[in-house]
Design a protein around this nucleic acid. Structure first.
Ligand SMILES: [Mn+2]
Ligand SMILES: [Mn+2]
Ligand SMILES: [Mn+2]
Ligand SMILES: [Mn+2]
Lengths: 218, 218
DNA sequence: TTTTATTTTTAGCCTTGTCTAAATATAAGG
DNA sequence: CCTTATATTTAGACAAGGCTAAAAATAAAA
């Protein structure tokens, strides 16, 4: 078994591995976990003992297949609980992350399996992120940032990069959620801002917005 | 805020206070929590500092009103989650306790409030135990043990004293659950055994069974 | 009322997970 | 290639929560 702290480290390293493709540095983990690098060194050495990651001094770490599976399972639980909170308890999508951070550590495979079924075996969480299956496999979809779209391109919102309540509430205000159709009406190359069409409305979005919204175009 | 360990102590002391009416001894807490008395002394002194219980050396402890409220809230969460597991995820009533032991520590008043509503504001958990309200008040019902019933008396099963999986599964086998009507057909004073009627069936129950089943007669 | 048994507390130690301060490796600049 | 800057690790400490062994208080017996 892995403690709550260990699970959180594995999850953080899993996410960092995807972002930066390759060894994850001690400082990167410390920053993400909001702890000190010295604490990370300690924990990473312990996790290496447990064979869930490989570690060489000063060289960074990489999850082992087993470590990756454990991390994916924590993420699976996090996202399933988020679906539960939004779909069944009617939370807003910007309110669920903190609670899911707690629920993701509940240990019971049977519970996860039944929860999954109860929710209708969802593929994505309320933020558009894919839910790993019980073996830790993730169905990756080709998505890109709205900022990478060209003028006149159409897409469907499939996720967010930034997940702060402020950003999610901004999207709510503009009636943008997972599944919303978006068309790029114009793009300003100087500052990366865009004019987009959403339903009947058309409005301006800054580059900061466009860089944090994932769309699927095809 | 109270840690998971602190919450578990408060809950244990709350339950012991009800059983033994009065100060709870260090040894009693240790036995219930499956820890050593010395550990209990440490924790009880810390909780006295936090004003959730009163403690005088060698004299035992009593919860303060605030401590009682905190304990009742943990129990509220435990029992609400048990209802969720049985009613929504179709667990058997003998399978839910361990998982609820974990879920009872999830911290979010909003979550509890929404869960309560989602479940239809239940008054009792799957074992017939009352669910405290958000202020920590418990609706006590007059119930008695089946063993205290006389011949020809009728009652409705409203709860169990023992909650082991073995006992609950025994009841399942005999088609006895919360709400089941029971009639005492005969009672053997020598060994406390009974013949009871449940639905169409009538069968023998030992004193041990009769002493662990609560019924409401009126 | 002594003596013995039981309960409770204290003292000291351990593990987990964190921190700060200091030491050491690696990276970057000149 | 040498020197400074940055990243990383080590050493030592601490708080939470547990344990064992010993001491002290209380309860029970003689
Ligand atoms: Mn989340
Ligand atoms: Mn999410
Ligand atoms: Mn229970
Ligand atoms: Mn119960």
């Amino acid at each position: 078994m892995f403690s709550r702290a260990e699970e959180n480290y594995l999850k953080a390293i899993y996410h960092l591995e995807q972002q930066i493709q390759g060894e994850v540095s001690t400082n990167a983990i410390a920053e993400r976990m909001d702890t000190k690098p010295s604490s990370v060194t300690d924990m990473v050495q312990k996790l290496a003992e447990k064979e869930v990651l490989s570690y060489k001094k000063y060289k960074g770490t990489l999850l082992t297949p087993n470590g990756r599976k454990i991390a994916a399972n924590v993420i699976r639980k996090h996202r399933l609980w988020e679906v539960f909170l939004v779909e069944k308890l009617n939370f807003q999508w910007d309110e669920v992350h903190e609670i899911a951070e707690q629920l993701e550590h509940i240990q019971s495979d049977e519970l996860v399996s039944r929860l999954d079924r109860f929710l209708g075996n969802p593929d994505f969480d309320p933020h558009g992120d894919p839910i790993p299956d019980k073996h830790g496999n993730v169905k990756r979809t080709e998505k890109k940032l709205l900022s990478e779209c060209d003028k006149n391109q159409r897409g469907v919102c499939v996720g967010v990069k930034e997940t702060s309540a402020e950003f999610l509430q901004y999207l709510d205000k503009r009636k943008i959620s997972i599944g919303t159709k978006i068309k790029v009406l114009g793009k300003e190359f100087f500052d990366g801002s865009m004019i987009i069409q959403v339903g009947g409305d058309q409005f301006f979005v800054s580059q900061k917005i466009a860089e944090n919204l994932y769309v699927q175009t095809n």
